[in-house]
């Protein structure tokens, strides 16, 4: 079964073999409100953990999305660029942003698991 890990900046990464799928969490999309624009990286871009991976915009805010892990951009989800509402509707599923070819599949180990992230979000409220 694929494992999913979370960051304090509210990104998630799902490890699928030597690839990682990255998106933003439900908490993040709620805080941002209705998304109106998503800027995705170019395929082939080399990304280090903590680098800016994408930009998301609502009407009144713009935020950078940072990569939870290092790797090469293998695919981007054009559907969310065309219809940002998809991220609001299904952030952990159809609302994914980027598929990375991972440099080190174990790199995500240090991030929060689902339970730890839930506790972390509760602490923010």
């Amino acid at each position: 079964m694929a494992i999913t890990r979370f960051t304090k900046e509210h990104e998630w990464v799902r490890i699928e073999g030597d690839e990682g799928v990255v998106g933003i969490t439900s908490y993040a999309q709620e805080q941002l409100g209705d998304l109106v624009y998503i800027e995705l990286p170019e395929i082939g871009a080399e990304i280090a953990a903590g680098d800016q991976l994408a930009v998301v915009e609502s009407v009144k805010a713009a935020s950078e999305v940072y990569s939870p892990v290092s790797g090469t951009v293998a695919a981007t989800n054009q559907a969310v660029a065309d219809n940002p509402a998809q991220v609001n509707a299904d952030p952990l599923g159809e609302g994914w942003f980027v598929r990375l070819k991972l440099r080190d599949p174990d790199e995500a180990e240090g991030l929060m698991d689902e339970d730890a992230y839930a506790v972390y979000c509760e602490g923010l409220a």
Partner: peptide, 12 residues
Amino acid sequence: LSTREQHIRREK
């Protein structure tokens, strides 16, 4: 498209 502007994006 106000997210281009200084009151939201500040130094960016």
